[in-house]
Design a protein around this nucleic acid. Sequence first.
RNA 1: GGACGGGUGGGUGAGUGGCUAAAACCAGCAGACUGUAAAUCUGCCGCUCCUUGCGGGCUACGAAGGUUCGAAUCCUUCCCCGUCCA
Length: 324
Amino acid sequence: MNAPIELPLVVIVGPTASGKSTLGVWLAERLDGEVIACDSTQLYCGFDIGTAKPALKERRGVPHHLLDVLDGKEESTAGGYRELALAVLRDLRARKRLPILTVGTGLYLRALLEGLADLPQRSEELRERLWASAEEHGVGYLHRIVERLDPESAGKIAPADEQKLIRTIEVCLLTRKPLAEVHRSGRKPLEGWRPVKIGLMPPREALYQRVHARTEAMLAGGWLEEVRRLMASGVPESAKAFDFIGYRELRKVLRGEMNLEQASAAIQQATRRYAKRQMTWFRREKGVHWLAGFGDEPKIQQEAKEIVSPQLGAPVTGARGIDV
RNA sequence: GGACGGGUGGGUGAGUGGCUAAAACCAGCAGACUGUAAAUCUGCCGCUCCUUGCGGGCUACGAAGGUUCGAAUCCUUCCCCGUCCA
């Protein structure tokens, strides 16, 4: 298979509420682009307000991809996202449109750009058994198993990190090889695209203020009603999407375990922590042009355009970036 | 005015003479993370100094005194908060 010609791919990273969507649309309007959401929560149909999914009017006629592609009962995965995104990229290549990725979920971006090792998908039966015996045998049990199956990975995972331990055991059992070894077999990075990465990093205080204001606005905009409707429409309580920030708190409100005021405070706090984790992740992302502001600020938008524009014509130059 | 109960680090709150710069939890900060990632987990968390060590100094449990080799912990007075009695 011949390697396809490299085309530019705009990637916008940043914490929640930093204005990625706004900047994405703004750039798309000026550069013949289409937006591809890279957000594990915006994938879900019906989960709109709380996931800060851009509303139709905010999309301003710019096509948006990978919103509303799962129903509430399904579960997204990094590998699944990669497949979906690759299909969209093929489509945009054929139609000669500039893809603009708005990225909230760092893992999904990495899965798309750097690929994933050839690992089996999750196995629910296996996981259930592991959870059960983990509960029975107490903390440390899973870690001891990993030490036996894959000492190298065991050294990298904390004994309390059951989620990662289970994934490791799962892969070891299904592939009959240590995870660490399977990882060494390599990943298949994205071919045919040259990422141009823009990072939004507004001042911490200002970001938190936006998070607070946005939470209030979402609640005023009918978020609780949305949750009520989703529950009534048959999305099971156990659905993954109901564990997203805000959705879990608002379910408590509906169950009478919490009042709206408490929920609002809890949501703001959880969102702040989430934003912080995103920043930790994105700071390590290579080749990002960082901008110290919000994506809806004209100054920032202009700067972003000045970074992207020169990259559009240039054929096969390697992506250059400023590391922070 | 009287009787109790209480005032602890950013918050909640344990601690009743040395093992206490003070549990635990939360918040905060930093970090890890290849199919749950809006998840999961880790470290730090009074100030300060350096020869970064289970190191030194300083400050700290409402305030001021006192007892003691040693006090957040005991005593005295004062100030504040809560409940009850007048």
